[in-house]
Protein backbone atom coordinates (compact mmCIF):
# COMPACT_ATOMS: atom_id res chain seq x y z
CA UNK A 1 0.00 0.00 0.00
CA UNK A 2 2.67 2.47 1.02
CA UNK A 3 4.75 1.29 -1.96
CA UNK A 4 2.18 2.45 -4.48
CA UNK A 5 1.91 5.76 -2.77
CA UNK A 6 5.59 6.57 -3.00
CA UNK A 7 5.73 5.43 -6.64
CA UNK A 8 2.89 7.76 -7.43
CA UNK A 9 4.76 10.58 -5.80
CA UNK A 10 7.76 9.95 -8.01
CA UNK A 11 5.58 9.83 -11.11
CA UNK A 12 4.01 13.13 -10.16
CA UNK A 13 7.31 14.86 -9.69
CA UNK A 14 8.43 13.55 -13.07
CA UNK A 15 5.34 14.94 -14.72
CA UNK A 16 6.31 18.35 -13.43
CA UNK A 17 9.64 18.09 -15.24
CA UNK A 18 7.74 17.18 -18.41
CA UNK A 19 5.86 20.41 -18.18
CA UNK A 20 8.99 22.56 -17.97
CA UNK A 21 10.82 20.71 -20.74
CA UNK A 22 8.17 21.08 -23.41
CA UNK A 23 8.64 24.83 -23.40
CA UNK A 24 11.81 24.48 -25.49
CA UNK A 25 11.60 24.93 -29.26
CA UNK A 26 12.40 21.67 -31.01
CA UNK A 27 14.81 21.77 -33.95
CA UNK A 28 13.89 20.67 -37.47
CA UNK A 29 15.56 17.30 -36.91
CA UNK A 30 13.72 16.79 -33.65
CA UNK A 31 10.42 17.55 -35.34
CA UNK A 32 11.22 15.18 -38.16
CA UNK A 33 12.14 12.46 -35.68
CA UNK A 34 9.01 13.07 -33.62
CA UNK A 35 6.83 12.88 -36.73
CA UNK A 36 8.47 9.63 -37.85
CA UNK A 37 7.99 8.05 -34.44
CA UNK A 38 4.49 9.47 -33.94
CA UNK A 39 2.59 6.24 -34.51
CA UNK A 40 5.03 3.98 -32.67
CA UNK A 41 3.71 2.40 -29.51
CA UNK A 42 5.94 2.68 -26.43
CA UNK A 43 6.51 -1.05 -25.99
CA UNK A 44 9.76 -3.03 -25.72
CA UNK A 45 10.82 -4.42 -29.11
CA UNK A 46 8.35 -2.34 -31.09
CA UNK A 47 8.90 -2.04 -34.88
CA UNK A 48 9.95 1.34 -36.29
CA UNK A 49 8.88 2.75 -39.65
CA UNK A 50 12.44 3.16 -40.95
CA UNK A 51 14.89 1.19 -38.83
CA UNK A 52 18.61 1.57 -39.53
CA UNK A 53 19.67 -1.02 -36.94
CA UNK A 54 17.64 -4.15 -36.27
CA UNK A 55 18.77 -6.68 -33.67
CA UNK A 56 17.18 -10.08 -33.06
CA UNK A 57 17.71 -12.50 -30.18
CA UNK A 58 21.11 -11.09 -29.35
CA UNK A 59 22.45 -12.70 -26.20
CA UNK A 60 25.75 -12.89 -24.38
CA UNK A 61 26.68 -14.49 -21.08
CA UNK A 62 29.81 -14.04 -19.04
CA UNK A 63 30.07 -17.14 -16.94
CA UNK A 64 26.73 -17.30 -15.21
CA UNK A 65 25.76 -13.68 -15.89
CA UNK A 66 23.38 -13.09 -18.80
CA UNK A 67 24.88 -9.71 -19.67
CA UNK A 68 22.67 -9.17 -22.74
CA UNK A 69 19.45 -10.84 -23.88
CA UNK A 70 17.72 -8.58 -26.35
CA UNK A 71 14.79 -10.24 -28.12
CA UNK A 72 14.18 -7.54 -30.66
CA UNK A 73 15.34 -3.96 -30.95
CA UNK A 74 15.06 -1.43 -33.76
CA UNK A 75 16.67 1.97 -33.99
CA UNK A 76 14.88 4.54 -36.12
CA UNK A 77 17.02 6.30 -38.74
CA UNK A 78 17.78 9.96 -38.12
CA UNK A 79 16.93 9.95 -34.42
CA UNK A 80 18.80 10.39 -31.20
CA UNK A 81 18.08 7.12 -29.45
CA UNK A 82 19.23 6.87 -25.87
CA UNK A 83 20.13 3.63 -24.12
CA UNK A 84 19.67 3.96 -20.41
CA UNK A 85 19.67 1.58 -17.51
CA UNK A 86 21.37 0.93 -14.19
CA UNK A 87 25.08 0.11 -13.95
CA UNK A 88 25.77 -3.34 -15.30
CA UNK A 89 22.53 -3.45 -17.29
CA UNK A 90 24.41 -4.55 -20.41
CA UNK A 91 24.44 -1.35 -22.43
CA UNK A 92 28.15 -1.36 -23.18
CA UNK A 93 28.10 -5.08 -23.84
CA UNK A 94 25.29 -4.56 -26.34
CA UNK A 95 27.42 -1.88 -28.04
CA UNK A 96 30.36 -4.27 -28.19
CA UNK A 97 28.24 -7.00 -29.72
CA UNK A 98 26.58 -5.05 -32.50
CA UNK A 99 29.76 -3.16 -33.39
CA UNK A 100 31.70 -6.41 -33.81
CA UNK A 101 34.02 -5.97 -30.82
CA UNK A 102 32.66 -8.99 -29.02
CA UNK A 103 31.08 -12.23 -30.24
CA UNK A 104 27.54 -12.96 -29.03
CA UNK A 105 26.35 -16.39 -27.94
CA UNK A 106 23.44 -16.03 -30.34
CA UNK A 107 21.65 -13.48 -32.42
CA UNK A 108 21.57 -11.63 -35.72
CA UNK A 109 21.54 -7.96 -36.47
CA UNK A 110 21.48 -5.85 -39.59
CA UNK A 111 22.56 -2.34 -40.38
CA UNK A 112 20.93 -0.36 -43.16
CA UNK A 113 19.28 -3.51 -44.49
CA UNK A 114 22.47 -5.60 -44.61
CA UNK A 115 23.07 -8.47 -42.26
CA UNK A 116 26.25 -7.68 -40.39
CA UNK A 117 26.10 -10.28 -37.65
CA UNK A 118 29.57 -11.70 -37.09
CA UNK A 119 31.26 -9.19 -39.42
CA UNK A 120 34.64 -7.93 -38.21
CA UNK A 121 34.59 -4.62 -36.39
CA UNK A 122 36.52 -2.73 -39.03
CA UNK A 123 34.04 -3.74 -41.76
CA UNK A 124 31.14 -2.61 -39.63
CA UNK A 125 32.86 0.74 -39.07
CA UNK A 126 33.49 1.10 -42.80
CA UNK A 127 29.82 0.45 -43.48
CA UNK A 128 29.11 3.60 -41.53
CA UNK A 129 28.42 2.39 -38.02
CA UNK A 130 31.03 3.84 -35.70
CA UNK A 131 31.24 3.57 -31.94
CA UNK A 132 33.16 5.23 -29.16
CA UNK A 133 34.30 3.59 -25.95
CA UNK A 134 33.16 4.16 -22.40
CA UNK A 135 36.79 3.96 -21.29
CA UNK A 136 38.38 6.25 -23.82
CA UNK A 137 41.05 4.96 -26.13
CA UNK A 138 43.22 7.93 -26.98
CA UNK A 139 46.10 7.01 -29.28
CA UNK A 140 48.60 8.44 -26.86
CA UNK A 141 51.74 8.84 -28.92
CA UNK A 142 49.88 10.35 -31.85
CA UNK A 143 49.06 14.03 -31.80
CA UNK A 144 45.50 15.14 -31.29
CA UNK A 145 45.32 16.15 -34.94
CA UNK A 146 46.72 12.80 -36.09
CA UNK A 147 44.15 11.04 -33.92
CA UNK A 148 41.38 12.81 -35.75
CA UNK A 149 42.96 12.46 -39.21
CA UNK A 150 43.15 8.72 -38.68
CA UNK A 151 39.36 8.61 -38.79
CA UNK A 152 39.13 9.59 -42.46
CA UNK A 153 38.06 6.70 -44.67
CA UNK A 154 39.31 5.59 -48.08
CA UNK A 155 42.69 7.24 -47.69
CA UNK A 156 44.87 6.39 -50.67
CA UNK A 157 48.02 6.71 -48.59
CA UNK A 158 46.86 3.99 -46.22
CA UNK A 159 47.80 1.32 -48.74
CA UNK A 160 51.35 0.13 -48.22
CA UNK A 161 52.39 0.29 -51.85
CA UNK A 162 51.14 3.84 -52.28
CA UNK A 163 52.52 5.06 -48.96
CA UNK A 164 56.09 5.90 -50.08
CA UNK A 165 54.75 7.75 -53.13
CA UNK A 166 53.91 11.03 -51.48
CA UNK A 167 52.50 12.67 -54.60
CA UNK A 168 49.82 9.97 -54.85
CA UNK A 169 48.19 10.91 -51.57
CA UNK A 170 49.40 14.40 -50.66
CA UNK A 171 46.39 16.18 -52.15
CA UNK A 172 43.93 13.98 -50.32
CA UNK A 173 45.99 14.28 -47.13
CA UNK A 174 45.64 18.06 -47.24
CA UNK A 175 41.86 17.76 -47.49
CA UNK A 176 41.83 15.29 -44.62
CA UNK A 177 43.91 17.64 -42.51
CA UNK A 178 41.66 20.57 -43.22
CA UNK A 179 38.59 18.60 -42.23
CA UNK A 180 40.31 17.30 -39.11
CA UNK A 181 41.32 20.80 -38.09
CA UNK A 182 37.75 21.96 -38.37
CA UNK A 183 36.60 19.12 -36.13
CA UNK A 184 39.38 19.74 -33.62
CA UNK A 185 38.28 23.34 -33.48
CA UNK A 186 34.64 22.41 -33.11
CA UNK A 187 35.51 20.31 -30.08
CA UNK A 188 37.70 23.07 -28.62
CA UNK A 189 40.93 21.14 -28.84
CA UNK A 190 42.74 23.51 -31.21
CA UNK A 191 45.28 24.54 -28.62
CA UNK A 192 46.26 20.88 -28.24
CA UNK A 193 46.28 19.97 -31.93
CA UNK A 194 50.00 19.24 -32.05
CA UNK A 195 50.38 17.77 -28.59
CA UNK A 196 50.46 14.06 -27.90
CA UNK A 197 46.94 12.84 -27.22
CA UNK A 198 48.37 11.14 -24.14
CA UNK A 199 48.57 14.45 -22.29
CA UNK A 200 44.85 15.13 -22.74
CA UNK A 201 42.72 15.15 -19.62
CA UNK A 202 39.96 12.59 -19.20
CA UNK A 203 37.29 14.96 -20.48
CA UNK A 204 39.41 16.09 -23.41
CA UNK A 205 39.83 12.45 -24.37
CA UNK A 206 36.05 12.08 -24.52
CA UNK A 207 35.91 15.04 -26.88
CA UNK A 208 38.79 13.71 -28.95
CA UNK A 209 37.17 10.34 -29.32
CA UNK A 210 33.95 11.89 -30.51
CA UNK A 211 35.76 14.11 -33.01
CA UNK A 212 37.64 11.07 -34.29
CA UNK A 213 34.43 9.09 -34.73
CA UNK A 214 32.81 11.96 -36.59
CA UNK A 215 35.75 12.08 -38.98
CA UNK A 216 34.56 8.74 -40.34
CA UNK A 217 31.34 10.42 -41.58
CA UNK A 218 29.22 7.63 -40.16
CA UNK A 219 25.55 7.06 -40.94
CA UNK A 220 25.16 5.99 -37.34
CA UNK A 221 27.31 6.85 -34.39
CA UNK A 222 27.18 5.00 -31.09
CA UNK A 223 28.41 7.04 -28.16
CA UNK A 224 29.11 5.28 -24.87
CA UNK A 225 28.79 7.94 -22.18
CA UNK A 226 30.28 10.80 -24.21
CA UNK A 227 29.51 13.34 -21.52
CA UNK A 228 31.10 11.58 -18.56
CA UNK A 229 33.71 13.86 -17.07
CA UNK A 230 33.06 16.76 -19.43
CA UNK A 231 32.42 20.10 -17.75
CA UNK A 232 28.81 21.35 -17.76
CA UNK A 233 29.41 24.28 -20.11
CA UNK A 234 30.98 21.97 -22.65
CA UNK A 235 28.21 19.43 -22.16
CA UNK A 236 25.78 22.01 -23.50
CA UNK A 237 27.89 22.54 -26.60
CA UNK A 238 28.39 18.78 -27.02
CA UNK A 239 24.63 18.37 -26.90
CA UNK A 240 24.45 21.05 -29.55
CA UNK A 241 26.85 19.06 -31.75
CA UNK A 242 24.89 15.88 -31.25
CA UNK A 243 21.63 17.57 -32.14
CA UNK A 244 23.19 19.19 -35.18
CA UNK A 245 24.48 15.79 -36.31
CA UNK A 246 20.97 14.41 -35.99
CA UNK A 247 19.57 17.40 -37.89
CA UNK A 248 22.05 16.62 -40.67
CA UNK A 249 20.63 13.10 -40.87
CA UNK A 250 23.06 11.03 -38.78
CA UNK A 251 21.54 8.46 -36.46
CA UNK A 252 22.83 8.65 -32.92
CA UNK A 253 22.71 5.97 -30.28
CA UNK A 254 23.74 7.30 -26.94
CA UNK A 255 24.43 5.70 -23.58
CA UNK A 256 24.17 8.24 -20.81
CA UNK A 257 23.38 8.30 -17.12
CA UNK A 258 22.46 11.97 -16.75
CA UNK A 259 18.65 12.00 -16.85
CA UNK A 260 18.36 15.72 -17.57
CA UNK A 261 20.54 15.27 -20.63
CA UNK A 262 18.65 12.18 -21.76
CA UNK A 263 15.25 13.75 -21.36
CA UNK A 264 16.23 16.95 -23.11
CA UNK A 265 17.78 15.57 -26.28
CA UNK A 266 16.48 12.06 -26.93
CA UNK A 267 13.86 11.36 -29.56
CA UNK A 268 13.48 7.83 -28.31
CA UNK A 269 14.66 6.04 -25.20
CA UNK A 270 15.42 2.35 -24.74
CA UNK A 271 15.69 1.12 -21.18
CA UNK A 272 17.92 -1.82 -20.33
CA UNK A 273 17.81 -3.77 -17.11
CA UNK A 274 19.67 -6.99 -16.41
CA UNK A 275 20.52 -7.35 -20.07
CA UNK A 276 17.02 -7.06 -21.49
CA UNK A 277 15.05 -4.19 -22.97
CA UNK A 278 12.37 -3.52 -20.39
CA UNK A 279 10.85 -0.38 -21.86
CA UNK A 280 10.96 1.87 -24.91
CA UNK A 281 9.32 5.13 -25.72
CA UNK A 282 9.49 8.89 -26.00
CA UNK A 283 10.92 10.74 -23.00
CA UNK A 284 7.40 11.40 -21.74
CA UNK A 285 6.52 7.72 -21.85
CA UNK A 286 9.66 6.74 -20.02
CA UNK A 287 9.35 9.31 -17.25
CA UNK A 288 6.10 7.86 -16.13
CA UNK A 289 6.89 4.21 -16.81
CA UNK A 290 6.62 2.25 -13.58
CA UNK A 291 8.93 -0.52 -14.72
CA UNK A 292 11.63 2.03 -15.34
CA UNK A 293 11.25 3.66 -11.99
CA UNK A 294 11.34 0.25 -10.39
CA UNK A 295 14.49 -0.70 -12.28
CA UNK A 296 16.21 2.47 -11.15
CA UNK A 297 15.02 2.65 -7.59
CA UNK A 298 15.00 -1.08 -7.09
CA UNK A 299 12.05 -3.26 -6.17
CA UNK A 300 10.87 -2.41 -2.70
CA UNK A 301 12.28 -5.09 -0.53
CA UNK A 302 9.74 -6.57 1.82
CA UNK A 303 11.72 -5.25 4.74
CA UNK A 304 9.59 -5.21 7.85
CA UNK A 305 8.81 -1.69 8.98
CA UNK A 306 9.01 -0.64 12.62
CA UNK A 307 5.26 -1.04 13.22
CA UNK A 308 5.18 -4.48 11.66
CA UNK A 309 8.03 -5.49 13.91
CA UNK A 310 6.08 -4.33 16.93
CA UNK A 311 2.96 -6.16 15.87
Amino acid sequence: MSDELSNDAVVESREEIVATDTEQHPSAGAERAAAALAGVAPEPGVAKPDAILVADDVSKSFGGVRAVRVDHLEVQRGTITALIGPNGAGKSTFFNLVSGFDKPDSGTWSFDGTDISGAPAYRIARRGMVRTFQLTKALMRLTVLENVMLGATEQRGERMLAAPLRWVWKGQEDDVEEKARALVERFRLSHMAHEFAGICSGGQRKLLEMARAMMVDPAMIMLDEPMAGVNPALVQSLLGHIQRLRDEGTTIVLVEHDMDVIMSISDWIVVFAEGAVIAEGRPDDIRTNEKVIEAYLGKRRALPTAQENDA
Partner: peptide
Amino acid sequence: LAARSLGKN
Protein backbone atom coordinates in the same frame (compact mmCIF):
# COMPACT_ATOMS: atom_id res chain seq x y z
CA LEU B 1 40.66 -1.53 -30.73
CA ALA B 2 40.59 2.19 -31.44
CA ALA B 3 42.11 1.62 -34.88
CA ARG B 4 39.54 -1.07 -35.55
CA SER B 5 36.69 1.16 -34.44
CA LEU B 6 37.75 3.62 -37.14
CA GLY B 7 37.51 1.00 -39.88
CA LYS B 8 41.16 -0.05 -40.11
CA ASN B 9 41.92 -3.68 -40.87
